[in-house]
Simulated scan of single mutants.
Amino acid sequence: MKLGISSYSLYQAMHAGSMTIGDVIEWTAEIGASHIEIVPNLGFDFEANPELEDQIREKAAAAGLDISNYAIGGNFITETEEQYEAEIARIIREVDRVHRLGGKLMRHDVASRPDTSIARFNEDLARVAAACQRIADHAKQYGITTSVENHGYYVQASDRVQALVHAVDRPNFKTTLDVGNFVCVDENPVAAVKNNLPYASMIHIKDFYIRPSYRNPGEGWFTSTGGSYLRGAIAGHGDLDLYEILRLIKAFGYNGYMSIEYEGMEECRAATKIAFDNVKRIWNEV
């Protein structure tokens, strides 16, 4: 098992100024992780500090960590053709950054709309897929695999992710499989993980507390598309069946990177370390 940490998990500390991305890399190595996933613009910014590329690559190498995945936003639903082309060009430049960092995996978002209906998704699919094809084709020269994550509501359900992967039809375009995010669109995460494991280039381990729509827990929660209340949890503390999810991943024979992605209310260093230890323990038990 190649278990590591997403830098996003420590965003709380970076945002507060108590950790830098360099500190996050050192801390990740100290807890025994094998890799770090880089999520820019959440606690650090490459555009504001171009020297960060070299610093992160060198710091990770010195700490003995792989740079497993690089995750950025993106949206090919634009008002004009010029905006569409500009977004593709921007993400292609980020592919070049991944190459300079020494990574081989990259997640970029693809689409967001207020109207998340399946009819709208079907209308957008070909245009979104065409953009993903161009980016994957550029990434191929570096041996980089690009991917879409199941989040953002619009491209979140397992069948929509699969529809995009098949429409793109490139061997180096897959999915960053977040085991928890399916609950945001009220899909059973065990079934959804099983559906999409064959297409995964990267796995995020996450957990949620889940409450029904008629039991508003108050501050700190958000709602799924169907109205259920959700809050990020320490992996192993929430309501997902992580034992079954990790058993499925293990039985499938997945041997790629898995990242802890913590986004709860507890102090992020303690919470991320507990999540990391829980996932290691559960993996050995299933």
Results as ranks from 00 to 15, higher is better:
G17V: 01
A13Y: 07
P198H: 09
P114W: 06
M106F: 11
A60P: 11
D115P: 05
I67M: 13
Y214V: 12
N181I: 01
F222D: 01
E82G: 02
R269A: 09
I67G: 10
I210D: 07
D241Y: 00
A270R: 13
I38G: 05
M1Y: 11
G143F: 11
A129N: 09
T272H: 00
V190K: 06
L197Y: 00
T146K: 06
E30R: 14
G220V: 01
F252L: 00
L164F: 10
H166L: 14
E94Q: 15
V95I: 14
R113T: 14
I67D: 10
E123S: 13
N255Q: 15
V185G: 01
S259L: 01
K140S: 13
E244G: 09
I77C: 07
Y154W: 02
P217K: 08
Y70V: 03
V98K: 08
A62T: 11
F46R: 11
G253I: 04
D54E: 14
A119I: 12
I203F: 10
N41E: 12
S224A: 08
I274L: 15
D277H: 02
D96S: 05
I36W: 06
Y154L: 03
G143Q: 10
L230T: 02
F76W: 14
V165G: 09
T80W: 05
P217H: 08
F208V: 04
L248D: 10
D169R: 03
A13I: 04
E267P: 15
E79R: 15
A251E: 15
R231I: 00
D277A: 06
S201G: 11
S224P: 05
Y243M: 04
G64Q: 05
R93F: 05
S259A: 12
E187G: 04
G220M: 02
R90P: 08
V193D: 06
R107I: 05
Y229L: 03
E261G: 01
P217D: 08
G180Q: 09
G103A: 14
R231E: 09
D96I: 06
L197N: 04
P50T: 01
M1Q: 09
P217F: 06
S147Q: 08
